[in-house]
Design a protein around this nucleic acid. Sequence first.
DNA 1: TAGATTGTTAATCGATTAACAATC
DNA 2: TAGATTGTTAATCGATTAACAATC
Lengths: 221, 221
Amino acid sequence: MTARTSTESARDIPEATVARLPVYHRALTALSEAGTSTCSSEALAAAAGVNSAKLRKDLSYLGSYGTRGVGYDVDYLRYQIAREIGVTQDWPVVIVGIGNLGHALANYSGFSSRGFRTVALLDADPSRHGEVVAGINVRPFDDLESIVAEHGVAIGVIATPAVAAQAVADRMVACGVTSILNFAAGVLAVPAGVDVRKVDLSVELQVLAYHEQRKAQGEPA
Amino acid sequence: MTARTSTESARDIPEATVARLPVYHRALTALSEAGTSTCSSEALAAAAGVNSAKLRKDLSYLGSYGTRGVGYDVDYLRYQIAREIGVTQDWPVVIVGIGNLGHALANYSGFSSRGFRTVALLDADPSRHGEVVAGINVRPFDDLESIVAEHGVAIGVIATPAVAAQAVADRMVACGVTSILNFAAGVLAVPAGVDVRKVDLSVELQVLAYHEQRKAQGEPA
DNA sequence: TAGATTGTTAATCGATTAACAATC
DNA sequence: TAGATTGTTAATCGATTAACAATC
């Protein structure tokens, strides 16, 4: 799912670990805000919802930032993780498809606090143009190329209906976007070197329903 | 992450496979609507965005629904998967927290078409009560218990701010909800037997940013 | 029968976990 | 020094993939 360039640097971190680093980062932020200056792997693991062995293994890919017998310095570890995952950088983002979900995404505070800056909201529907969402003007989809070029956008978010998603992805890739977060149903075809992550809300519910169905089967009738 | 009851039935399907079955189901629906009556594992795998070996392995957990030398009957296989994952059932769902994301979820057509029926929208904020979203009245959070009892709700969706999420989960669990889809930041503590799936939008973007950062490092300066 | 394609086996790969030596 | 806790090793587990015998 995550294609990579051939020039990738040496030390690589397992995908499963990469996906948990933001969770640890958030837990450390919470601990820091609560005034905690030091924590053990056990405490941090509990805050992040994993077991401590996994946490220590994950952190070992980054380096040795703890002190045996003591634990981790919350702010120091938080900074090291932030640096590793790129939270310290500024990531201009374009959101395409300003329906209900696009609205929610544009207003989502979790993005801006992590270095993601929404530079444009685009929609193909002219009746939406000029509408202001989260303080940003909704503009025509055809502005994509100029916006990506102007702001150096590397990450695009697709929140369009399924039928439009592939065409949007093609245009994004053509003008230099190399990472796409896709909320539309269905599979996106993209060239090697472009990363796509898919969030499928109904799949999540369906996985729950599957297990729910099985729970029910085990109960007396 | 997915706790189970001890009375679970014998044949169990790997988690990774369970998460892909809804994707196959959707691909088969598309093929069926396009008038395709038969397809090979190769064709279905392409439509679902996986390789064919994985698809065949996944389907083998359900049974033998294909014909060697021929392929799969689209409608028959689609029905078998639907039965397995519970799409054929009716799943009453409660959504708590009707902010931007709650709005989007309430309006999301992908839920209703897969057997999920939103029976109530709840919010703790009195100023939202009475508002009609997707044809449903927003009601006080305190109505949770009566609604869950009345409709036999097993699945709850949490789209509240992070601070409220644990309290909402506790109330849900106390009145019989056994599966929770959580969009709020942070970790939910729930008893064994309750399944929680978490969708974290900023984690998805952060994983993309991590790889993006590494791509940039490999390029000439 | 010959060609096509499934279902399954076995090898490989990656992730998780427990245990503990290292060391503060 | 004694107690605590990390960082790492090694075992286990689960998922992926290629290959191919079974069989339509």
